[in-house]
């Protein structure tokens, strides 16, 4: 699996992402700067990592969504390419129109830096194949604008078509308002495109992929991708 990590000015989680991808694939991912207008030949997966691209000016991810490399990422996604966006990467995917909705300021107005739990709402996708439906896993989160919002129509479509990938839940797997720390609509932590090949989520599965990090809860996402893309 040839993975490409896109680096914008202000991206700061690209090294964590590289560790997770290398652990799952055994191959170092390519780091691609935002000015590039094309992806490397043979790219299987594009990852937009976390950070504060362009200082979060205007809106989180708004500037990055307009950068040259995102034109290439959009064309890649339109051809059926796999794209993962985590945290700021999720915000960029929404701003670029590759995923629906937007990430608002956390309802509490606080920057949230803590572990959260998520329930797998759609197993069997390239991103979730190695989890059971309803599985609960832990991931760190660190964001000020993670409050996913979609209007009634968008929300109904996502739910109806099974495109909600993850919901915030308690460690026991209960989807409650208390577990929804950023105030996201319907506890939505991560969503999928209709072809299931673009996924965005706010928490950081790449930061729990090794016992030295305190757990391997996030590893199934990356091993799922490796297996799905090997057979794609």
């Amino acid at each position: 699996m040839k993975a490409v990590i896109v680096v914008f000015p202000g991206t700061n989680r690209e090294r964590d992402m590289a560790i997770a991808l290398e652990r799952a694939t055994g191959i170092k991912p390519v780091m691609l700067f935002h000015r590039e207008g094309e992806l490397p030949a043979g790219t299987d997966l594009v990852v937009l990592p976390g950070g504060f691209s362009y200082g979060d000016y205007l809106r989180c991810g708004a500037m990055a969504a307009q950068s040259p490399v995102m034109g290439a990422v959009k064309r890649f996604a339109e051809r059926g390419g796999h794209v993962l966006g985590v945290c700021n990467g999720f915000q960029i995917l929404c701003e670029a129109g590759l995923l629906p909705g937007a990430l608002l300021r956390n309802a509490s107005l606080r920057f949230l830096s803590m572990d959260c739990h998520m329930r797998v709402e759609r197993a069997g996708t390239p991103f979730t194949a190695h989890w059971q439906q309803g599985a609960v896993f832990r991931a760190p989160m660190a964001h000020g604008d993670g409050n996913w919002f979609g209007d009634d129509e968008t929300h109904a479509r996502l739910v109806g078509e099974g495109l909600v990938a993850f919901r915030y839940c308690t460690p026991e797997g209960q989807v409650t308002p208390e577990a929804n720390r950023n105030g996201a609509r319907d506890n939505i932590a991560g969503i999928l495109s209709p072809n299931l090949r673009v996924c965005g989520l706010m928490p950081h599965p790449e930061d729990l992929v090794d016992p030295l990090m305190g757990g391997e809860d996030g590893l199934p996402m990356f091993t799922s991708l490796v297996e799905s893309l090997a057979t794609a």
């Binding site: 205007l58 809106r59 307009q66 909705g101 937007a102 919002f149 209007d151």
Partner: peptide, 9 residues
């Protein structure tokens, strides 16, 4: 439309 506002929100 293109940048200054996100018309989703």
């Amino acid at each position: 439309r293109r940048l200054l506002a996100n018309t989703v929100i």
